[in-house]
Amino acid sequence: MATDVKTIHGKNVFLFVRKLKDAKTAEGKLIPFQTSLSFDPSRDSDSTQTKSGVVTTSAAIETDLSAEFINNTSAIADALYDSLFDGDELECWIVNTERKNASGQYYSFYLRATVSEDSNDNDPDDLSTREVTFAVNGTPKRGWTKLPESAMEALEYAYRGLEALGENDTNGTAWQSADAGINLED
């Protein structure tokens, strides 16, 4: 097995969404608190037996896309309802934060879709959850995308120290593996 082949962890694959009509003015936004993401492109095929052998034909790509998340009050969670109720077309990115190219861009799929179903579970002893299913238009495109700073912050917050921030956005130093065992005495 090749040593440079790495596994992909589902916890590092995220769905970002934006209304298509907002493409010139807004960034794609992470759907907060995702618990699962299912991406299933497929192609039906048919075969016909001929005197010379089997001839196969392939249909167009059909893509199933769904996401589950803890229900929340984010604008992007509301935009999913807008897509379902008003037919707003969405741009969707499935971003793998474990796979980067030399330019620092992340491997991703780009899709255009509308929400076809939005199931909401509201058990009294648990958090409200939603499962959203998308109707994908056309064939997903593969590529590489940069993640804006706001997207990185949505994925993971940065370490901060105890002092008042003032003009700084940190004031502490994030842990690094080289810090293991450090314990300097005064």
Score class of each variant (00 low, 15 high):
D4L: 07
A75W: 04
A79W: 06
E89F: 09
W93P: 00
V136N: 06
S58E: 13
S108V: 05
A154C: 00
A154Q: 01
A174D: 15
T170V: 10
T170M: 07
V132K: 05
N120K: 11
D22M: 05
C92P: 01
V17I: 14
L30M: 06
G166P: 05
D88F: 12
T173P: 06
N183I: 12
N171W: 05
D121R: 12
M1D: 12
Q49G: 01
Y106D: 00
T133A: 13
D78S: 12
I76H: 04
L20I: 08
Y110H: 11
H9P: 00
V5C: 13
Y110K: 12
W93F: 06
A59M: 04
N96I: 01
T50M: 06
R112G: 06
Y81K: 14
D78R: 15
A102D: 13
Y159D: 09
D169C: 02
T73D: 14
A75T: 14
N96W: 03
F16K: 01
W144C: 03
E62R: 09
D186G: 13
F134L: 07
N183S: 15
D46T: 15
A67G: 09
E185Y: 14
P124F: 11
T35L: 02
G28P: 15
G53T: 06
S74A: 08
F16N: 02
D86M: 13
T25L: 02
A2T: 11
V136K: 03
T170C: 03
I70E: 04
E163A: 13
K100A: 08
F109S: 03
R18H: 01
A158Y: 12
E163C: 01
A77P: 07
D186I: 12
F134Y: 04
K6R: 13
F85V: 15
Q105N: 00
W175H: 12
E98I: 02
D126E: 11
D46M: 08
P140C: 03
G138P: 04
K51E: 12
S150H: 08
L155H: 00
F85C: 10
S52C: 03
T145G: 04
E89T: 15
E117Y: 10
A113G: 06
A164L: 14
S58H: 15
I31H: 03
G166R: 02
R160A: 06
N137E: 15
G181Y: 08
G181T: 01
T3L: 11
A59V: 04
D40A: 14
E156W: 08
D4Q: 07
